[in-house]
């Protein structure tokens, strides 16, 4: 199934990817072939099979509500590109 150019541009925008026109064409073809590969599953009769969201046979994996040591503010800010004394500075958000 081939994706339209409009669909490719929409998905790129959702992912905040700026694509050139030639990339739209190339990635559109690649993405379409991936979808075609996955859609092979549609050929099977799966009416009686519930959708599987997890391959693991596990449920209720939960942790006790006990605090554990966290990072110091200094450690937390080590990778910040523009640290402020009280936290992570980010550019102004366009409304």
């Amino acid at each position: 199934m081939a994706l339209t150019e409009q669909e490719i541009r929409h998905v790129a925008r959702l992912a905040r990817l700026g694509l050139r026109d030639d990339e739209v064409e190339r990635l559109g073809a690649e993405l379409s072939s991936i979808l075609a590969h996955v859609s092979a599953i549609s050929a099977l009769d799966l009416d009686d099979v519930p959708p599987t969201s997890h391959p693991l046979d596990l449920t209720n994996v939960l942790a006790d509500d006990e605090p554990r040591p966290c990072l110091s503010t200094e450690e937390a800010l080590l990778n910040a590109p523009d640290p402020a004394p009280e936290g992570f500075r980010v550019p102004p958000i366009g409304a």
Binding site: E86, G87, F88, R89, V90, P91, P92
Partner: peptide, 8 residues
Amino acid sequence: SASSVVDF
């Protein structure tokens, strides 16, 4: 605002 600071 000129910039924002994030508190996690």
